[in-house]
Design a protein around this nucleic acid. Sequence first.
RNA 1: GCGGGUGUAGCUCAGUAGGUUAGAGCGCCAGUUUGUGGUACUGGAUGUCGCCGGUUCAAAUCCGGUCACUCGCCCCA
Length: 416
Amino acid sequence: METIQPVRGTSDLLPAEKARHNHVIDSAKQGAAQFGYAEIATPIFEFTDVFSRPLGASSDVVAKETYSFEDRGGTGLTLRPEGTASAMRAIISNGLTQTLPQRWFYAGPMFRYERPQKGRMRQFHQIGCELIGQAGALGDAEIIACGVHILKSLGVLERTSLHLNTLGDSESRDSYRAVLIRYLEGYRKSLSEDSQRRLDTNPLRILDSKSETDKEILQDAPRLKTHLTSEAEAHFDAVKQALDAASIAWVEDPFLVRGLDYYSHTAFEFITDQLGAQGTVLGGGRYDGLSQTLGGPPLAGVGFAAGVERLALLGEDMPGQRPDLALLAAEKTAEADLFALGCSLRDTGFSAVNLYTGNMGKKMKAASKLEARFAIIAGDDELGRGSVSVRNMQDGVQTEVKISALASWLENVLSR
RNA sequence: GCGGGUGUAGCUCAGUAGGUUAGAGCGCCAGUUUGUGGUACUGGAUGUCGCCGGUUCAAAUCCGGUCACUCGCCCCA
């Protein structure tokens, strides 16, 4: 069968699934708003540099997962693989560096050229929060608390655990990187192929290798923790204290290293074991160096992003959309009147669906399938008396109501 | 990018020592009910068996390729 299909790794969001997505997005938006995060939207594509510079050329996202192309003018563009770089670019572009901090929320599609899997798509959707221009551990704690709040409001918090690590400041990382390389060089031949390559390009990433032999080698590797500057250590301690004070549970995970180069200090992920290989449901961290890689001034920032698909997969099914009313005419001659009645009922705020095809039985069946709360039935009889029959679809009780009194009658019965 | 699994009706799936008209359940359509659904009963429609090629008198079934989905690796949301 050669029926036309959507592009690999993309999919249509049909009503039931789109409803779940909307639920995730709406809850997140509302939760973020309680923290003072206002929604923004940036373009879906940017100059390629916006992503390649901050994320790091050696990062997997940029090296092999990016949708990059030249437009007709020969300009190098990239479909956004994530939201933080765009947000920071927007801060700089709009001169908002004078009015900090900014608390932003966003939701929208992201694009990564990857092998599709459950909970992993080439076009997927993220919600995210960015707190830009706020240094200090309380900023990190606030962002994490915001993530907790959103996961809680979606009822999935208890199905995740919060993993926490610090990547230190650049001074800490530089000294640690040297020590780590020295240690790992001794095992170079035993490391997995990927890790051998990373040893040259991005040694810190070896820390979260999933290879068993790599893990063994790493057991005795020097820890970043012992190479932190006293400032970096104090920062991390303050984050943990703030989380404890807010009763937010966390586990320290020294092997948590996030894939994007711009992170520094705190890195965190909310991980679940219920989505197969795609365990990370919400992740983020501090990115104090990001602004400068985009040509902006030094600016602090922390943020997170969460996958809408993954959250929708974790959350339970949402009730579908139900109309208040279904309108069905008993005779052809009544159709126009019911059409008009539907329009006026919608004007007064009800959701109403007109049914046009089939006999009464078919129409009732359709009304019941739509899960309409009430069916408004009328033929020439009722209309002649200036009224309609209103049937409660749940208990089957049917009453005749004057059209002039219909709106208030329904109002009364529906608000109950 | 690398490995494993799967691809038969709208959906979930049966169907192997290759054999003639390819099945079930759900759903859909119609009727029992010519102005009344959700239950029940009766009847009906639906497939180039993913695609291309090969073996064979004969392929949904065997072989090769290809595409898609899926699980894992990698990486992340």
